[in-house]
């Protein structure tokens, strides 16, 4: 087994809902090996998104440590986390979350605005990323001119353009039909196998989870790997 890329130790996350304390994650330990493709499944509200946010440095645990690569996210400041996210992690959401005012090309270039690349280099890298997801010919299109599947491909291009090691996907196929979903999942598989990306994907869909190497189950604040079928 290769060395872990991400390591959560004793992680708890508690939300205050009015007067009620909801402990979404309780004393979690998990390791994610580099180069793995993991699916996370669990009932709605079980803390899947919370777990993903902790891995991506969007949220901080109330207890425990989150280490990704060389960075201990749980002890970093918000602006340190911003800088870290810019180069170490790519996010893919259920509703794509592209900026409607920018073309596909410009959406993909966005993360590169935070780097030292010149505008020419930014354009070149974005073009390569769009090519990888098979949308080189849609660079000039605005999100409203694309289908759902195409929008999600642009979002994937945006997630990989700064060449992060870790991709975090929150129900990436939740809004797509079966056929389109399979195409997106195949693309993720290629990114994992051929481009060496470590992928953590939250999904409701057991068929989608089949594309991953392993499935992690989350329920009632606890998690564990699903026994191999």
């Amino acid at each position: 087994m290769s060395k872990p890329l991400a390591k959560l130790q004793g992680v708890s996350r508690v939300y205050q809902k009015g007067k009620e304390r909801v402990e979404v994650l309780h004393d979690i330990d998990v390791e994610i090996p580099e180069g793995d493709f993991i699916a996370i499944m669990g009932p709605s509200g079980s803390g899947k998104t919370t777990l993903l946010n902790l891995l991506g440095g969007l949220d901080k645990p109330d207890a425990g440590t989150v280490v990704v690569g060389d960075a201990e996210l749980s002890s970093m400041s918000n602006s340190q986390l911003s800088h870290w996210r810019a180069t170490h992690v790519g996010f893919i959401f259920q509703f794509y979350n592209l900026l409607p005012v920018l073309t596909a090309q410009k959406n993909v270039e966005l993360p590169l605005l935070l780097t030292r690349f010149s505008s020419k280099e930014r354009a070149e890298r974005a073009a390569i990323a769009l090519d990888i997801v098979g949308l080189a010919d849609r660079a000039k299109h605005y999100p409203r001119e694309l289908s759902g599947g195409q929008e999600q491909r642009v979002a994937i291009a945006r997630a990989i353009v700064s060449d992060p090691t870790l991709l975090l996907c929150d129900e990436p196929t939740g809004d797509l039909d079966r056929e389109t979903a399979d195409e997106i999942l195949k693309l993720l598989q290629i990114l994992n196998k051929e481009h060496g990306k470590t992928i953590v994907m939250v999904t409701h869909d057991a068929q989608a989870a089949e594309y991953a190497n392993r499935t992690l189950l989350v329920d009632k604040g606890k998690l564990g790997f699903k026994a191999a079928a």
Partner: peptide, 15 residues
């Protein structure tokens, strides 16, 4: 609001 959150997700700082 959600677009601004996406910018922050991508690594844009609050500032």
């Amino acid at each position: 609001i959600s677009e601004l959150a996406v910018l922050k997700t991508l690594g844009f700082t609050d500032m």
